[in-house]
Simulated scan of single mutants.
Amino acid sequence: MNRHRHALAAAPLSLAVALTLASGQVTADMQTETVEYTVNGKTFTGYMAYDDEAEGKRPGVLVVHEWWGHNEFAREQAEKLAAAGYTAFALDMYGSGKLAEHPEDAQAFMKEATKDIDQVKARFMAAKELLAQHDSVDGSKIAAQGYCFGGAVVLNMARLGVDLDAVVSYHGALGSPIKAEAGKVQPRIHVYTGGADKMVPSDQVSSLVKEMQDAGADLTLVSFPGVMHSFTNPGADKVAEEFNMPIAYDEQAAKRSWEGTLRLYEDVFSD
């Protein structure tokens, strides 16, 4: 396996980056890179996917992982986005090597990562800057999508006024101590949630709608009847059985939410 390492100059948020090109290609033209970077002295490992045969710069999409951490599912979503014509970066919110195999570990990692909203934003913004600086990316066109924990992260970035074109939350927590302010929310927002999701009850759904209406945000919310938490992840059923968790994969909800996401990106990036 040939590996090429590139050092990028330090940037704000103490961002230092080393890129390692992965060996295999998902398709003949798709490239994947394992990306090591630091934020405020802590090391993180992300994953970049893009088509190096496509001409010109294209929009970039950040992928924020579930509470388990930066895993294969997050990387697969980045690859799907690359196949759809985007450069995608599956970022790391926990730190290199922090990948949970038990819900208790996932809860601990999530609690540590979110103890300070400034820390959450710093880690997100470092990844955003890294993606925007990639040779294949038009840095003025960036979206973010997140799953479960990651869905809450991207919604909070929208609440904080981060410059994004679109934000997509899949079965993410919708409540937050941060409240959107009128005129501050910049991206168009899509939220996909399960009508039978015990982790995202209906009061969170209704509160989000009111919050975003009051803030003047452009929100589209889809609730799939009878669908449970983690509906996009084919591995959810195995986890549900192993840990007796109220989660389940739903093929139709996964398909419809993905198609809705691609339509959103095509629309917001059409200029």
Rank of each mutant, 00 (worst) to 15 (best):
M1V: 13
R5T: 15
A7S: 07
L8E: 00
A16H: 02
A18I: 08
V26D: 09
V26I: 05
T27V: 08
A28Q: 10
E33W: 12
E33Q: 09
V35N: 00
E36I: 02
N40P: 14
Y50A: 01
E53I: 01
K57V: 05
P59K: 03
V61L: 08
V61Y: 04
H65D: 10
E66R: 14
A90G: 03
E112C: 07
A113D: 11
T114E: 09
K121L: 07
A122Q: 09
R123S: 09
L130G: 04
Q133K: 07
K141I: 01
A144S: 10
G146I: 03
F149V: 00
G151E: 12
A152T: 10
A152Q: 15
N156F: 04
A158N: 05
R159Y: 06
L160R: 02
V162H: 02
D165C: 04
A166N: 11
V167I: 02
S169P: 14
S176A: 03
P177H: 02
I178V: 09
G183S: 00
V185T: 00
H190A: 06
V191S: 05
D197K: 01
S202Q: 14
S202D: 14
Q204M: 05
Q213H: 12
D214Y: 07
A217Y: 07
F224D: 08
G226A: 08
H229R: 13
T232D: 12
A236V: 12
K238D: 15
V239Q: 11
F243E: 00
K255M: 10
K255T: 13
G260D: 08
L264V: 09
E266Q: 14
S270F: 06
